[in-house]
């Protein structure tokens, strides 16, 4: 099994070389984008750790802001809960303890850029392989994603 993977990658590359070559120029940009990029080297250290997306700097979750928690919970129930349980997998992975596994920045980037994450980020690719359903973008704004992170942080603290 394992030995097949590099072979496949090689095959893909060999197949695509003439394609890029033949068309030349700007033509190919679309294809390149839709092709999963397996070269993790292109990601920065921050991206590997905290995900790819609009959140590019560390976020401090200090004292719990209860207003923000309430806002985050509201959005979570409306736009996340139909596919995620707190405990146990559903359509997507459980989120009750997600703050233990991932950084708040990673969670926010996944919410804000789900298609980019499953396409370009090794963890996203792995999750897609496991769950078979790509998480959709649910029209969540950056500050709303921040509120969701606050809520999940709070939930984790309260329930552990």
């Amino acid at each position: 099994m394992i030995s097949q993977k590099p072979l496949l990658t090689l095959l893909t590359i060999i197949l695509f070389i003439p394609a890029f070559h033949a068309c030349g120029g700007e033509e190919t940009s679309d294809r390149q984008q839709s092709q999963p990029q397996t070269e993790e080297a292109t990601l920065t250290e921050f991206e590997l750790e905290h995900g790819i997306g609009p959140v590019t700097e560390r976020i401090e979750i200090g004292d719990i802001d209860l207003d923000k928690v309430a806002e985050g919970r509201n959005i979570y129930e409306m736009k996340c809960e139909m596919c995620h349980n707190y405990q146990g997998r559903m359509v997507g992975p459980e989120l009750g303890n997600v703050m233990e596994r991932r950084s708040p920045e990673f969670v926010m980037n996944f919410i804000l850029n789900p298609s980019g994450m499953v396409r370009e980020h090794p963890v996203g690719q792995e999750l897609l392989r496991e769950y078979m359903t790509a998480m959709p973008f649910q029209n969540v704004q950056k500050d709303e994603a921040r509120a969701i992170a606050e809520y999940l942080w709070y939930y984790h603290k309260e329930n552990n």
């Binding site: 129930e77 409306m78 736009k79 809960e81 139909m82 649910q138 029209n139």
Partner: peptide, 18 residues
């Protein structure tokens, strides 16, 4: 492109699992 969920005032809308 979409109807914003937050603006859905349908009396029988189901916006949250609960």
């Amino acid at each position: 492109q979409i109807y914003e969920m937050e603006e859905n005032d349908h009396p029988h809308a189901l916006l949250r699992v609960a």
